[in-house]
Design a protein around this nucleic acid. Structure first.
Lengths: 143, 143
DNA sequence: TGTCTTGTAATAATGATTATTACACGTTAT
DNA sequence: ATAACGTGTAATAATCATTATTACAAGACA
């Protein structure tokens, strides 16, 4: 299983806003065109990104803008905004281990910490990369 | 999205074998009882674990055994055996970004390396933990 | 040979993700 | 104020991966 594409879509959205907001009015239709998905998918993600303070939305012709400087938006911020990270964790547990078996009763506790560490390690990498980095790279490639 | 529970199930299986193989004949029915899933699910995973050399299976009453010492089986070995890790990576990409948009055309390339690094960082943690560690912890808790 | 167990195909059930339509409502410009 | 444009969101369907389950063939061992 994988981390849903809505994460890369969300990153794409934010990067697009950073890339284009000075030159164009960025709308959900515009973003849908760049990402290649339905407008409603874009809007749903936009709402989540707005709730996280990553972007600012206003209705009408204004277009979407970043909620703060792209240097201050990490990939983890985006990840957290659109994925349900906290609730269940990256690793999915089988739901009914046998409490009468010493292994079944304790695996989760005995293994849990290690898996949390693995998850945090991945998230740390996402925290160290910003949208500004990505946009810079995009500008570089486009030259 | 999460990493499928078949990973924790597989770890549970291997830990069970390590924990019980000296005292009992460990079978798919036994394991299904401890894990709390259908026998066929266990068998399917057993087959994959066997292909990875993690366990050794024989039909009849013998029961399942480890393919090598539990100190030499990392969580990553198990992870790799039952998840399709290499093919597509941990992060799922949206499939049709617009090649006519400078962002759509290049996000994947510009972001790819960072995501791979995040994935590898997680896997590194899984590599540093062994089934032996887990079984030791299980014995400790059971005392 | 009989009993136990694995191997595996076939199928269904479940659940999450993603796509799409439809329409109410906010915002801006004229 | 009203038309034009854009977001917010409910409702529904399509798709896909995961997980469950039945059924039976075939290997291993006493």
């Amino acid at each position: 299983m994988q981390i849903a594409s809505r994460f890369t879509i969300a990153v794409h959205i934010v990067a697009c806003i950073d890339y284009f907001q000075k030159s164009t009015s960025v709308t959900s239709a515009f973003l849908a065109g760049s990402v290649g998905v339905n407008r409603v998918v874009i809007r749903t993600l936009m709402t989540k990104l707005k709730e996280a303070g990553i972007i600012a939305i206003s209705r009408g012709k204004t277009g979407v803008r970043l909620g703060r400087r792209s240097e201050e938006i990490s990939l983890y911020d985006v990840y957290k905004a659109v994925e349900s990270v906290d609730e269940s964790g990256l690793f999915n547990w089988h739901s009914s281990p046998n409490p009468l078996c010493p292994v079944g009763k304790n695996v989760r506790r005995a293994l849990g910490e290690t898996l949390v560490k693995a998850q945090l390690s991945m998230e740390k990498e996402l925290k160290s990369a910003t949208i500004a980095d990505l946009t810079a790279e995009l500008h570089k490639v486009a030259d």
